[in-house]
Design a protein around this nucleic acid. Structure first.
Lengths: 133, 133
DNA sequence: ATGGTAACTTGTGATATGCAAGTTACGAAT
DNA sequence: ATTCGTAACTTGCATATCACAAGTTACCAT
């Protein structure tokens, strides 16, 4: 028995509970929770390890952090690989699909800086950065 | 007693439960739930009335729809005004801050069309549209 | 009186989130 | 050999949010 091909390599997978095929609703079905895009932000700015994500000012609870990393990995947005053995420790990095979320985060930043008071202006490198796919 | 001015006109207000001043986290604190951006999408594409939002393919529950519209109004993203009396019926429209979310939705659409299979390509007018502020 | 429509509200169970504490596997220090 | 420290989690439990169905209100039309 051959499994049907679930999509081109590089594609992301939602788990079959999509609300519709609308690209906006579909994106939210994948990263539309309270923590996923905060983690993508951290990954885009160089963080790779569990404790580094914990240190971010938003203070994600560790159970949710573990759950989100697992989910993002299952969806093909993040990859987890060991950076040492004895004891095993893992580094998380973005896939091309994950890095491609950068423009979404840049537009959110622009919006927040225009309409929400006292939001930090991201460092210039972040705003001018282009995702390598 | 004079209420302190909570911000420049046109600014959005989050309710004081921000996780941080990061523009990304702050944006998510305001519209980072399962339904808000779907409603903004509908509003950007011309829908104005309660039942029109209900008709969208995602099928938002009516209690959540009412709650989200109330919250978006309180945050300054949506305005509610009666379009008739006897019986009173209301039309919802976006404020400038709400319309300014368009680029975020456009980038989400672009991302979904690239990385999620079988997502609808938005009508060209939506993708080339520029928000009037 | 009966039926229809728009815009909600209410009740209840399911799911997701938040907080604190505990666990595992190791290396290093005493 | 025991204790300490660290990274990366897991578990338990309380609270909050969500989903689904049904009911409500205020009208106009027949």
């Amino acid at each position: 028995m051959i499994k049907p091909d679930k999509g081109a390599p590089g594609n992301v997978v939602s788990g079959g509970r999509e609300r519709s095929s609308c690209p906006i609703a579909s994106t939210l079905d994948i990263v539309g929770d309270k923590w996923s895009l905060v983690l993508v932000r951290d990954l885009l700015t160089g963080k790779q390890r569990f404790n580094q994500f914990c240190d971010s000012p938003e203070g994600v609870p560790t159970n949710l952090l573990a759950a989100r990393l697992r989910k993002l990995e299952a969806q093909g947005i993040v990859v987890k690989q060991p950076y040492q053995t004895r004891p095993v420790r893992y580094a998380y990095t973005l896939t091309p699909a994950g890095r491609a979320l950068l423009p979404v985060l840049q537009e959110m930043s622009r919006w927040a800086n225009s309409y929400i008071e006292d939001t930090w202006v991201p460092p210039e490198p972040f705003m001018s950065m282009k995702a390598k796919l």
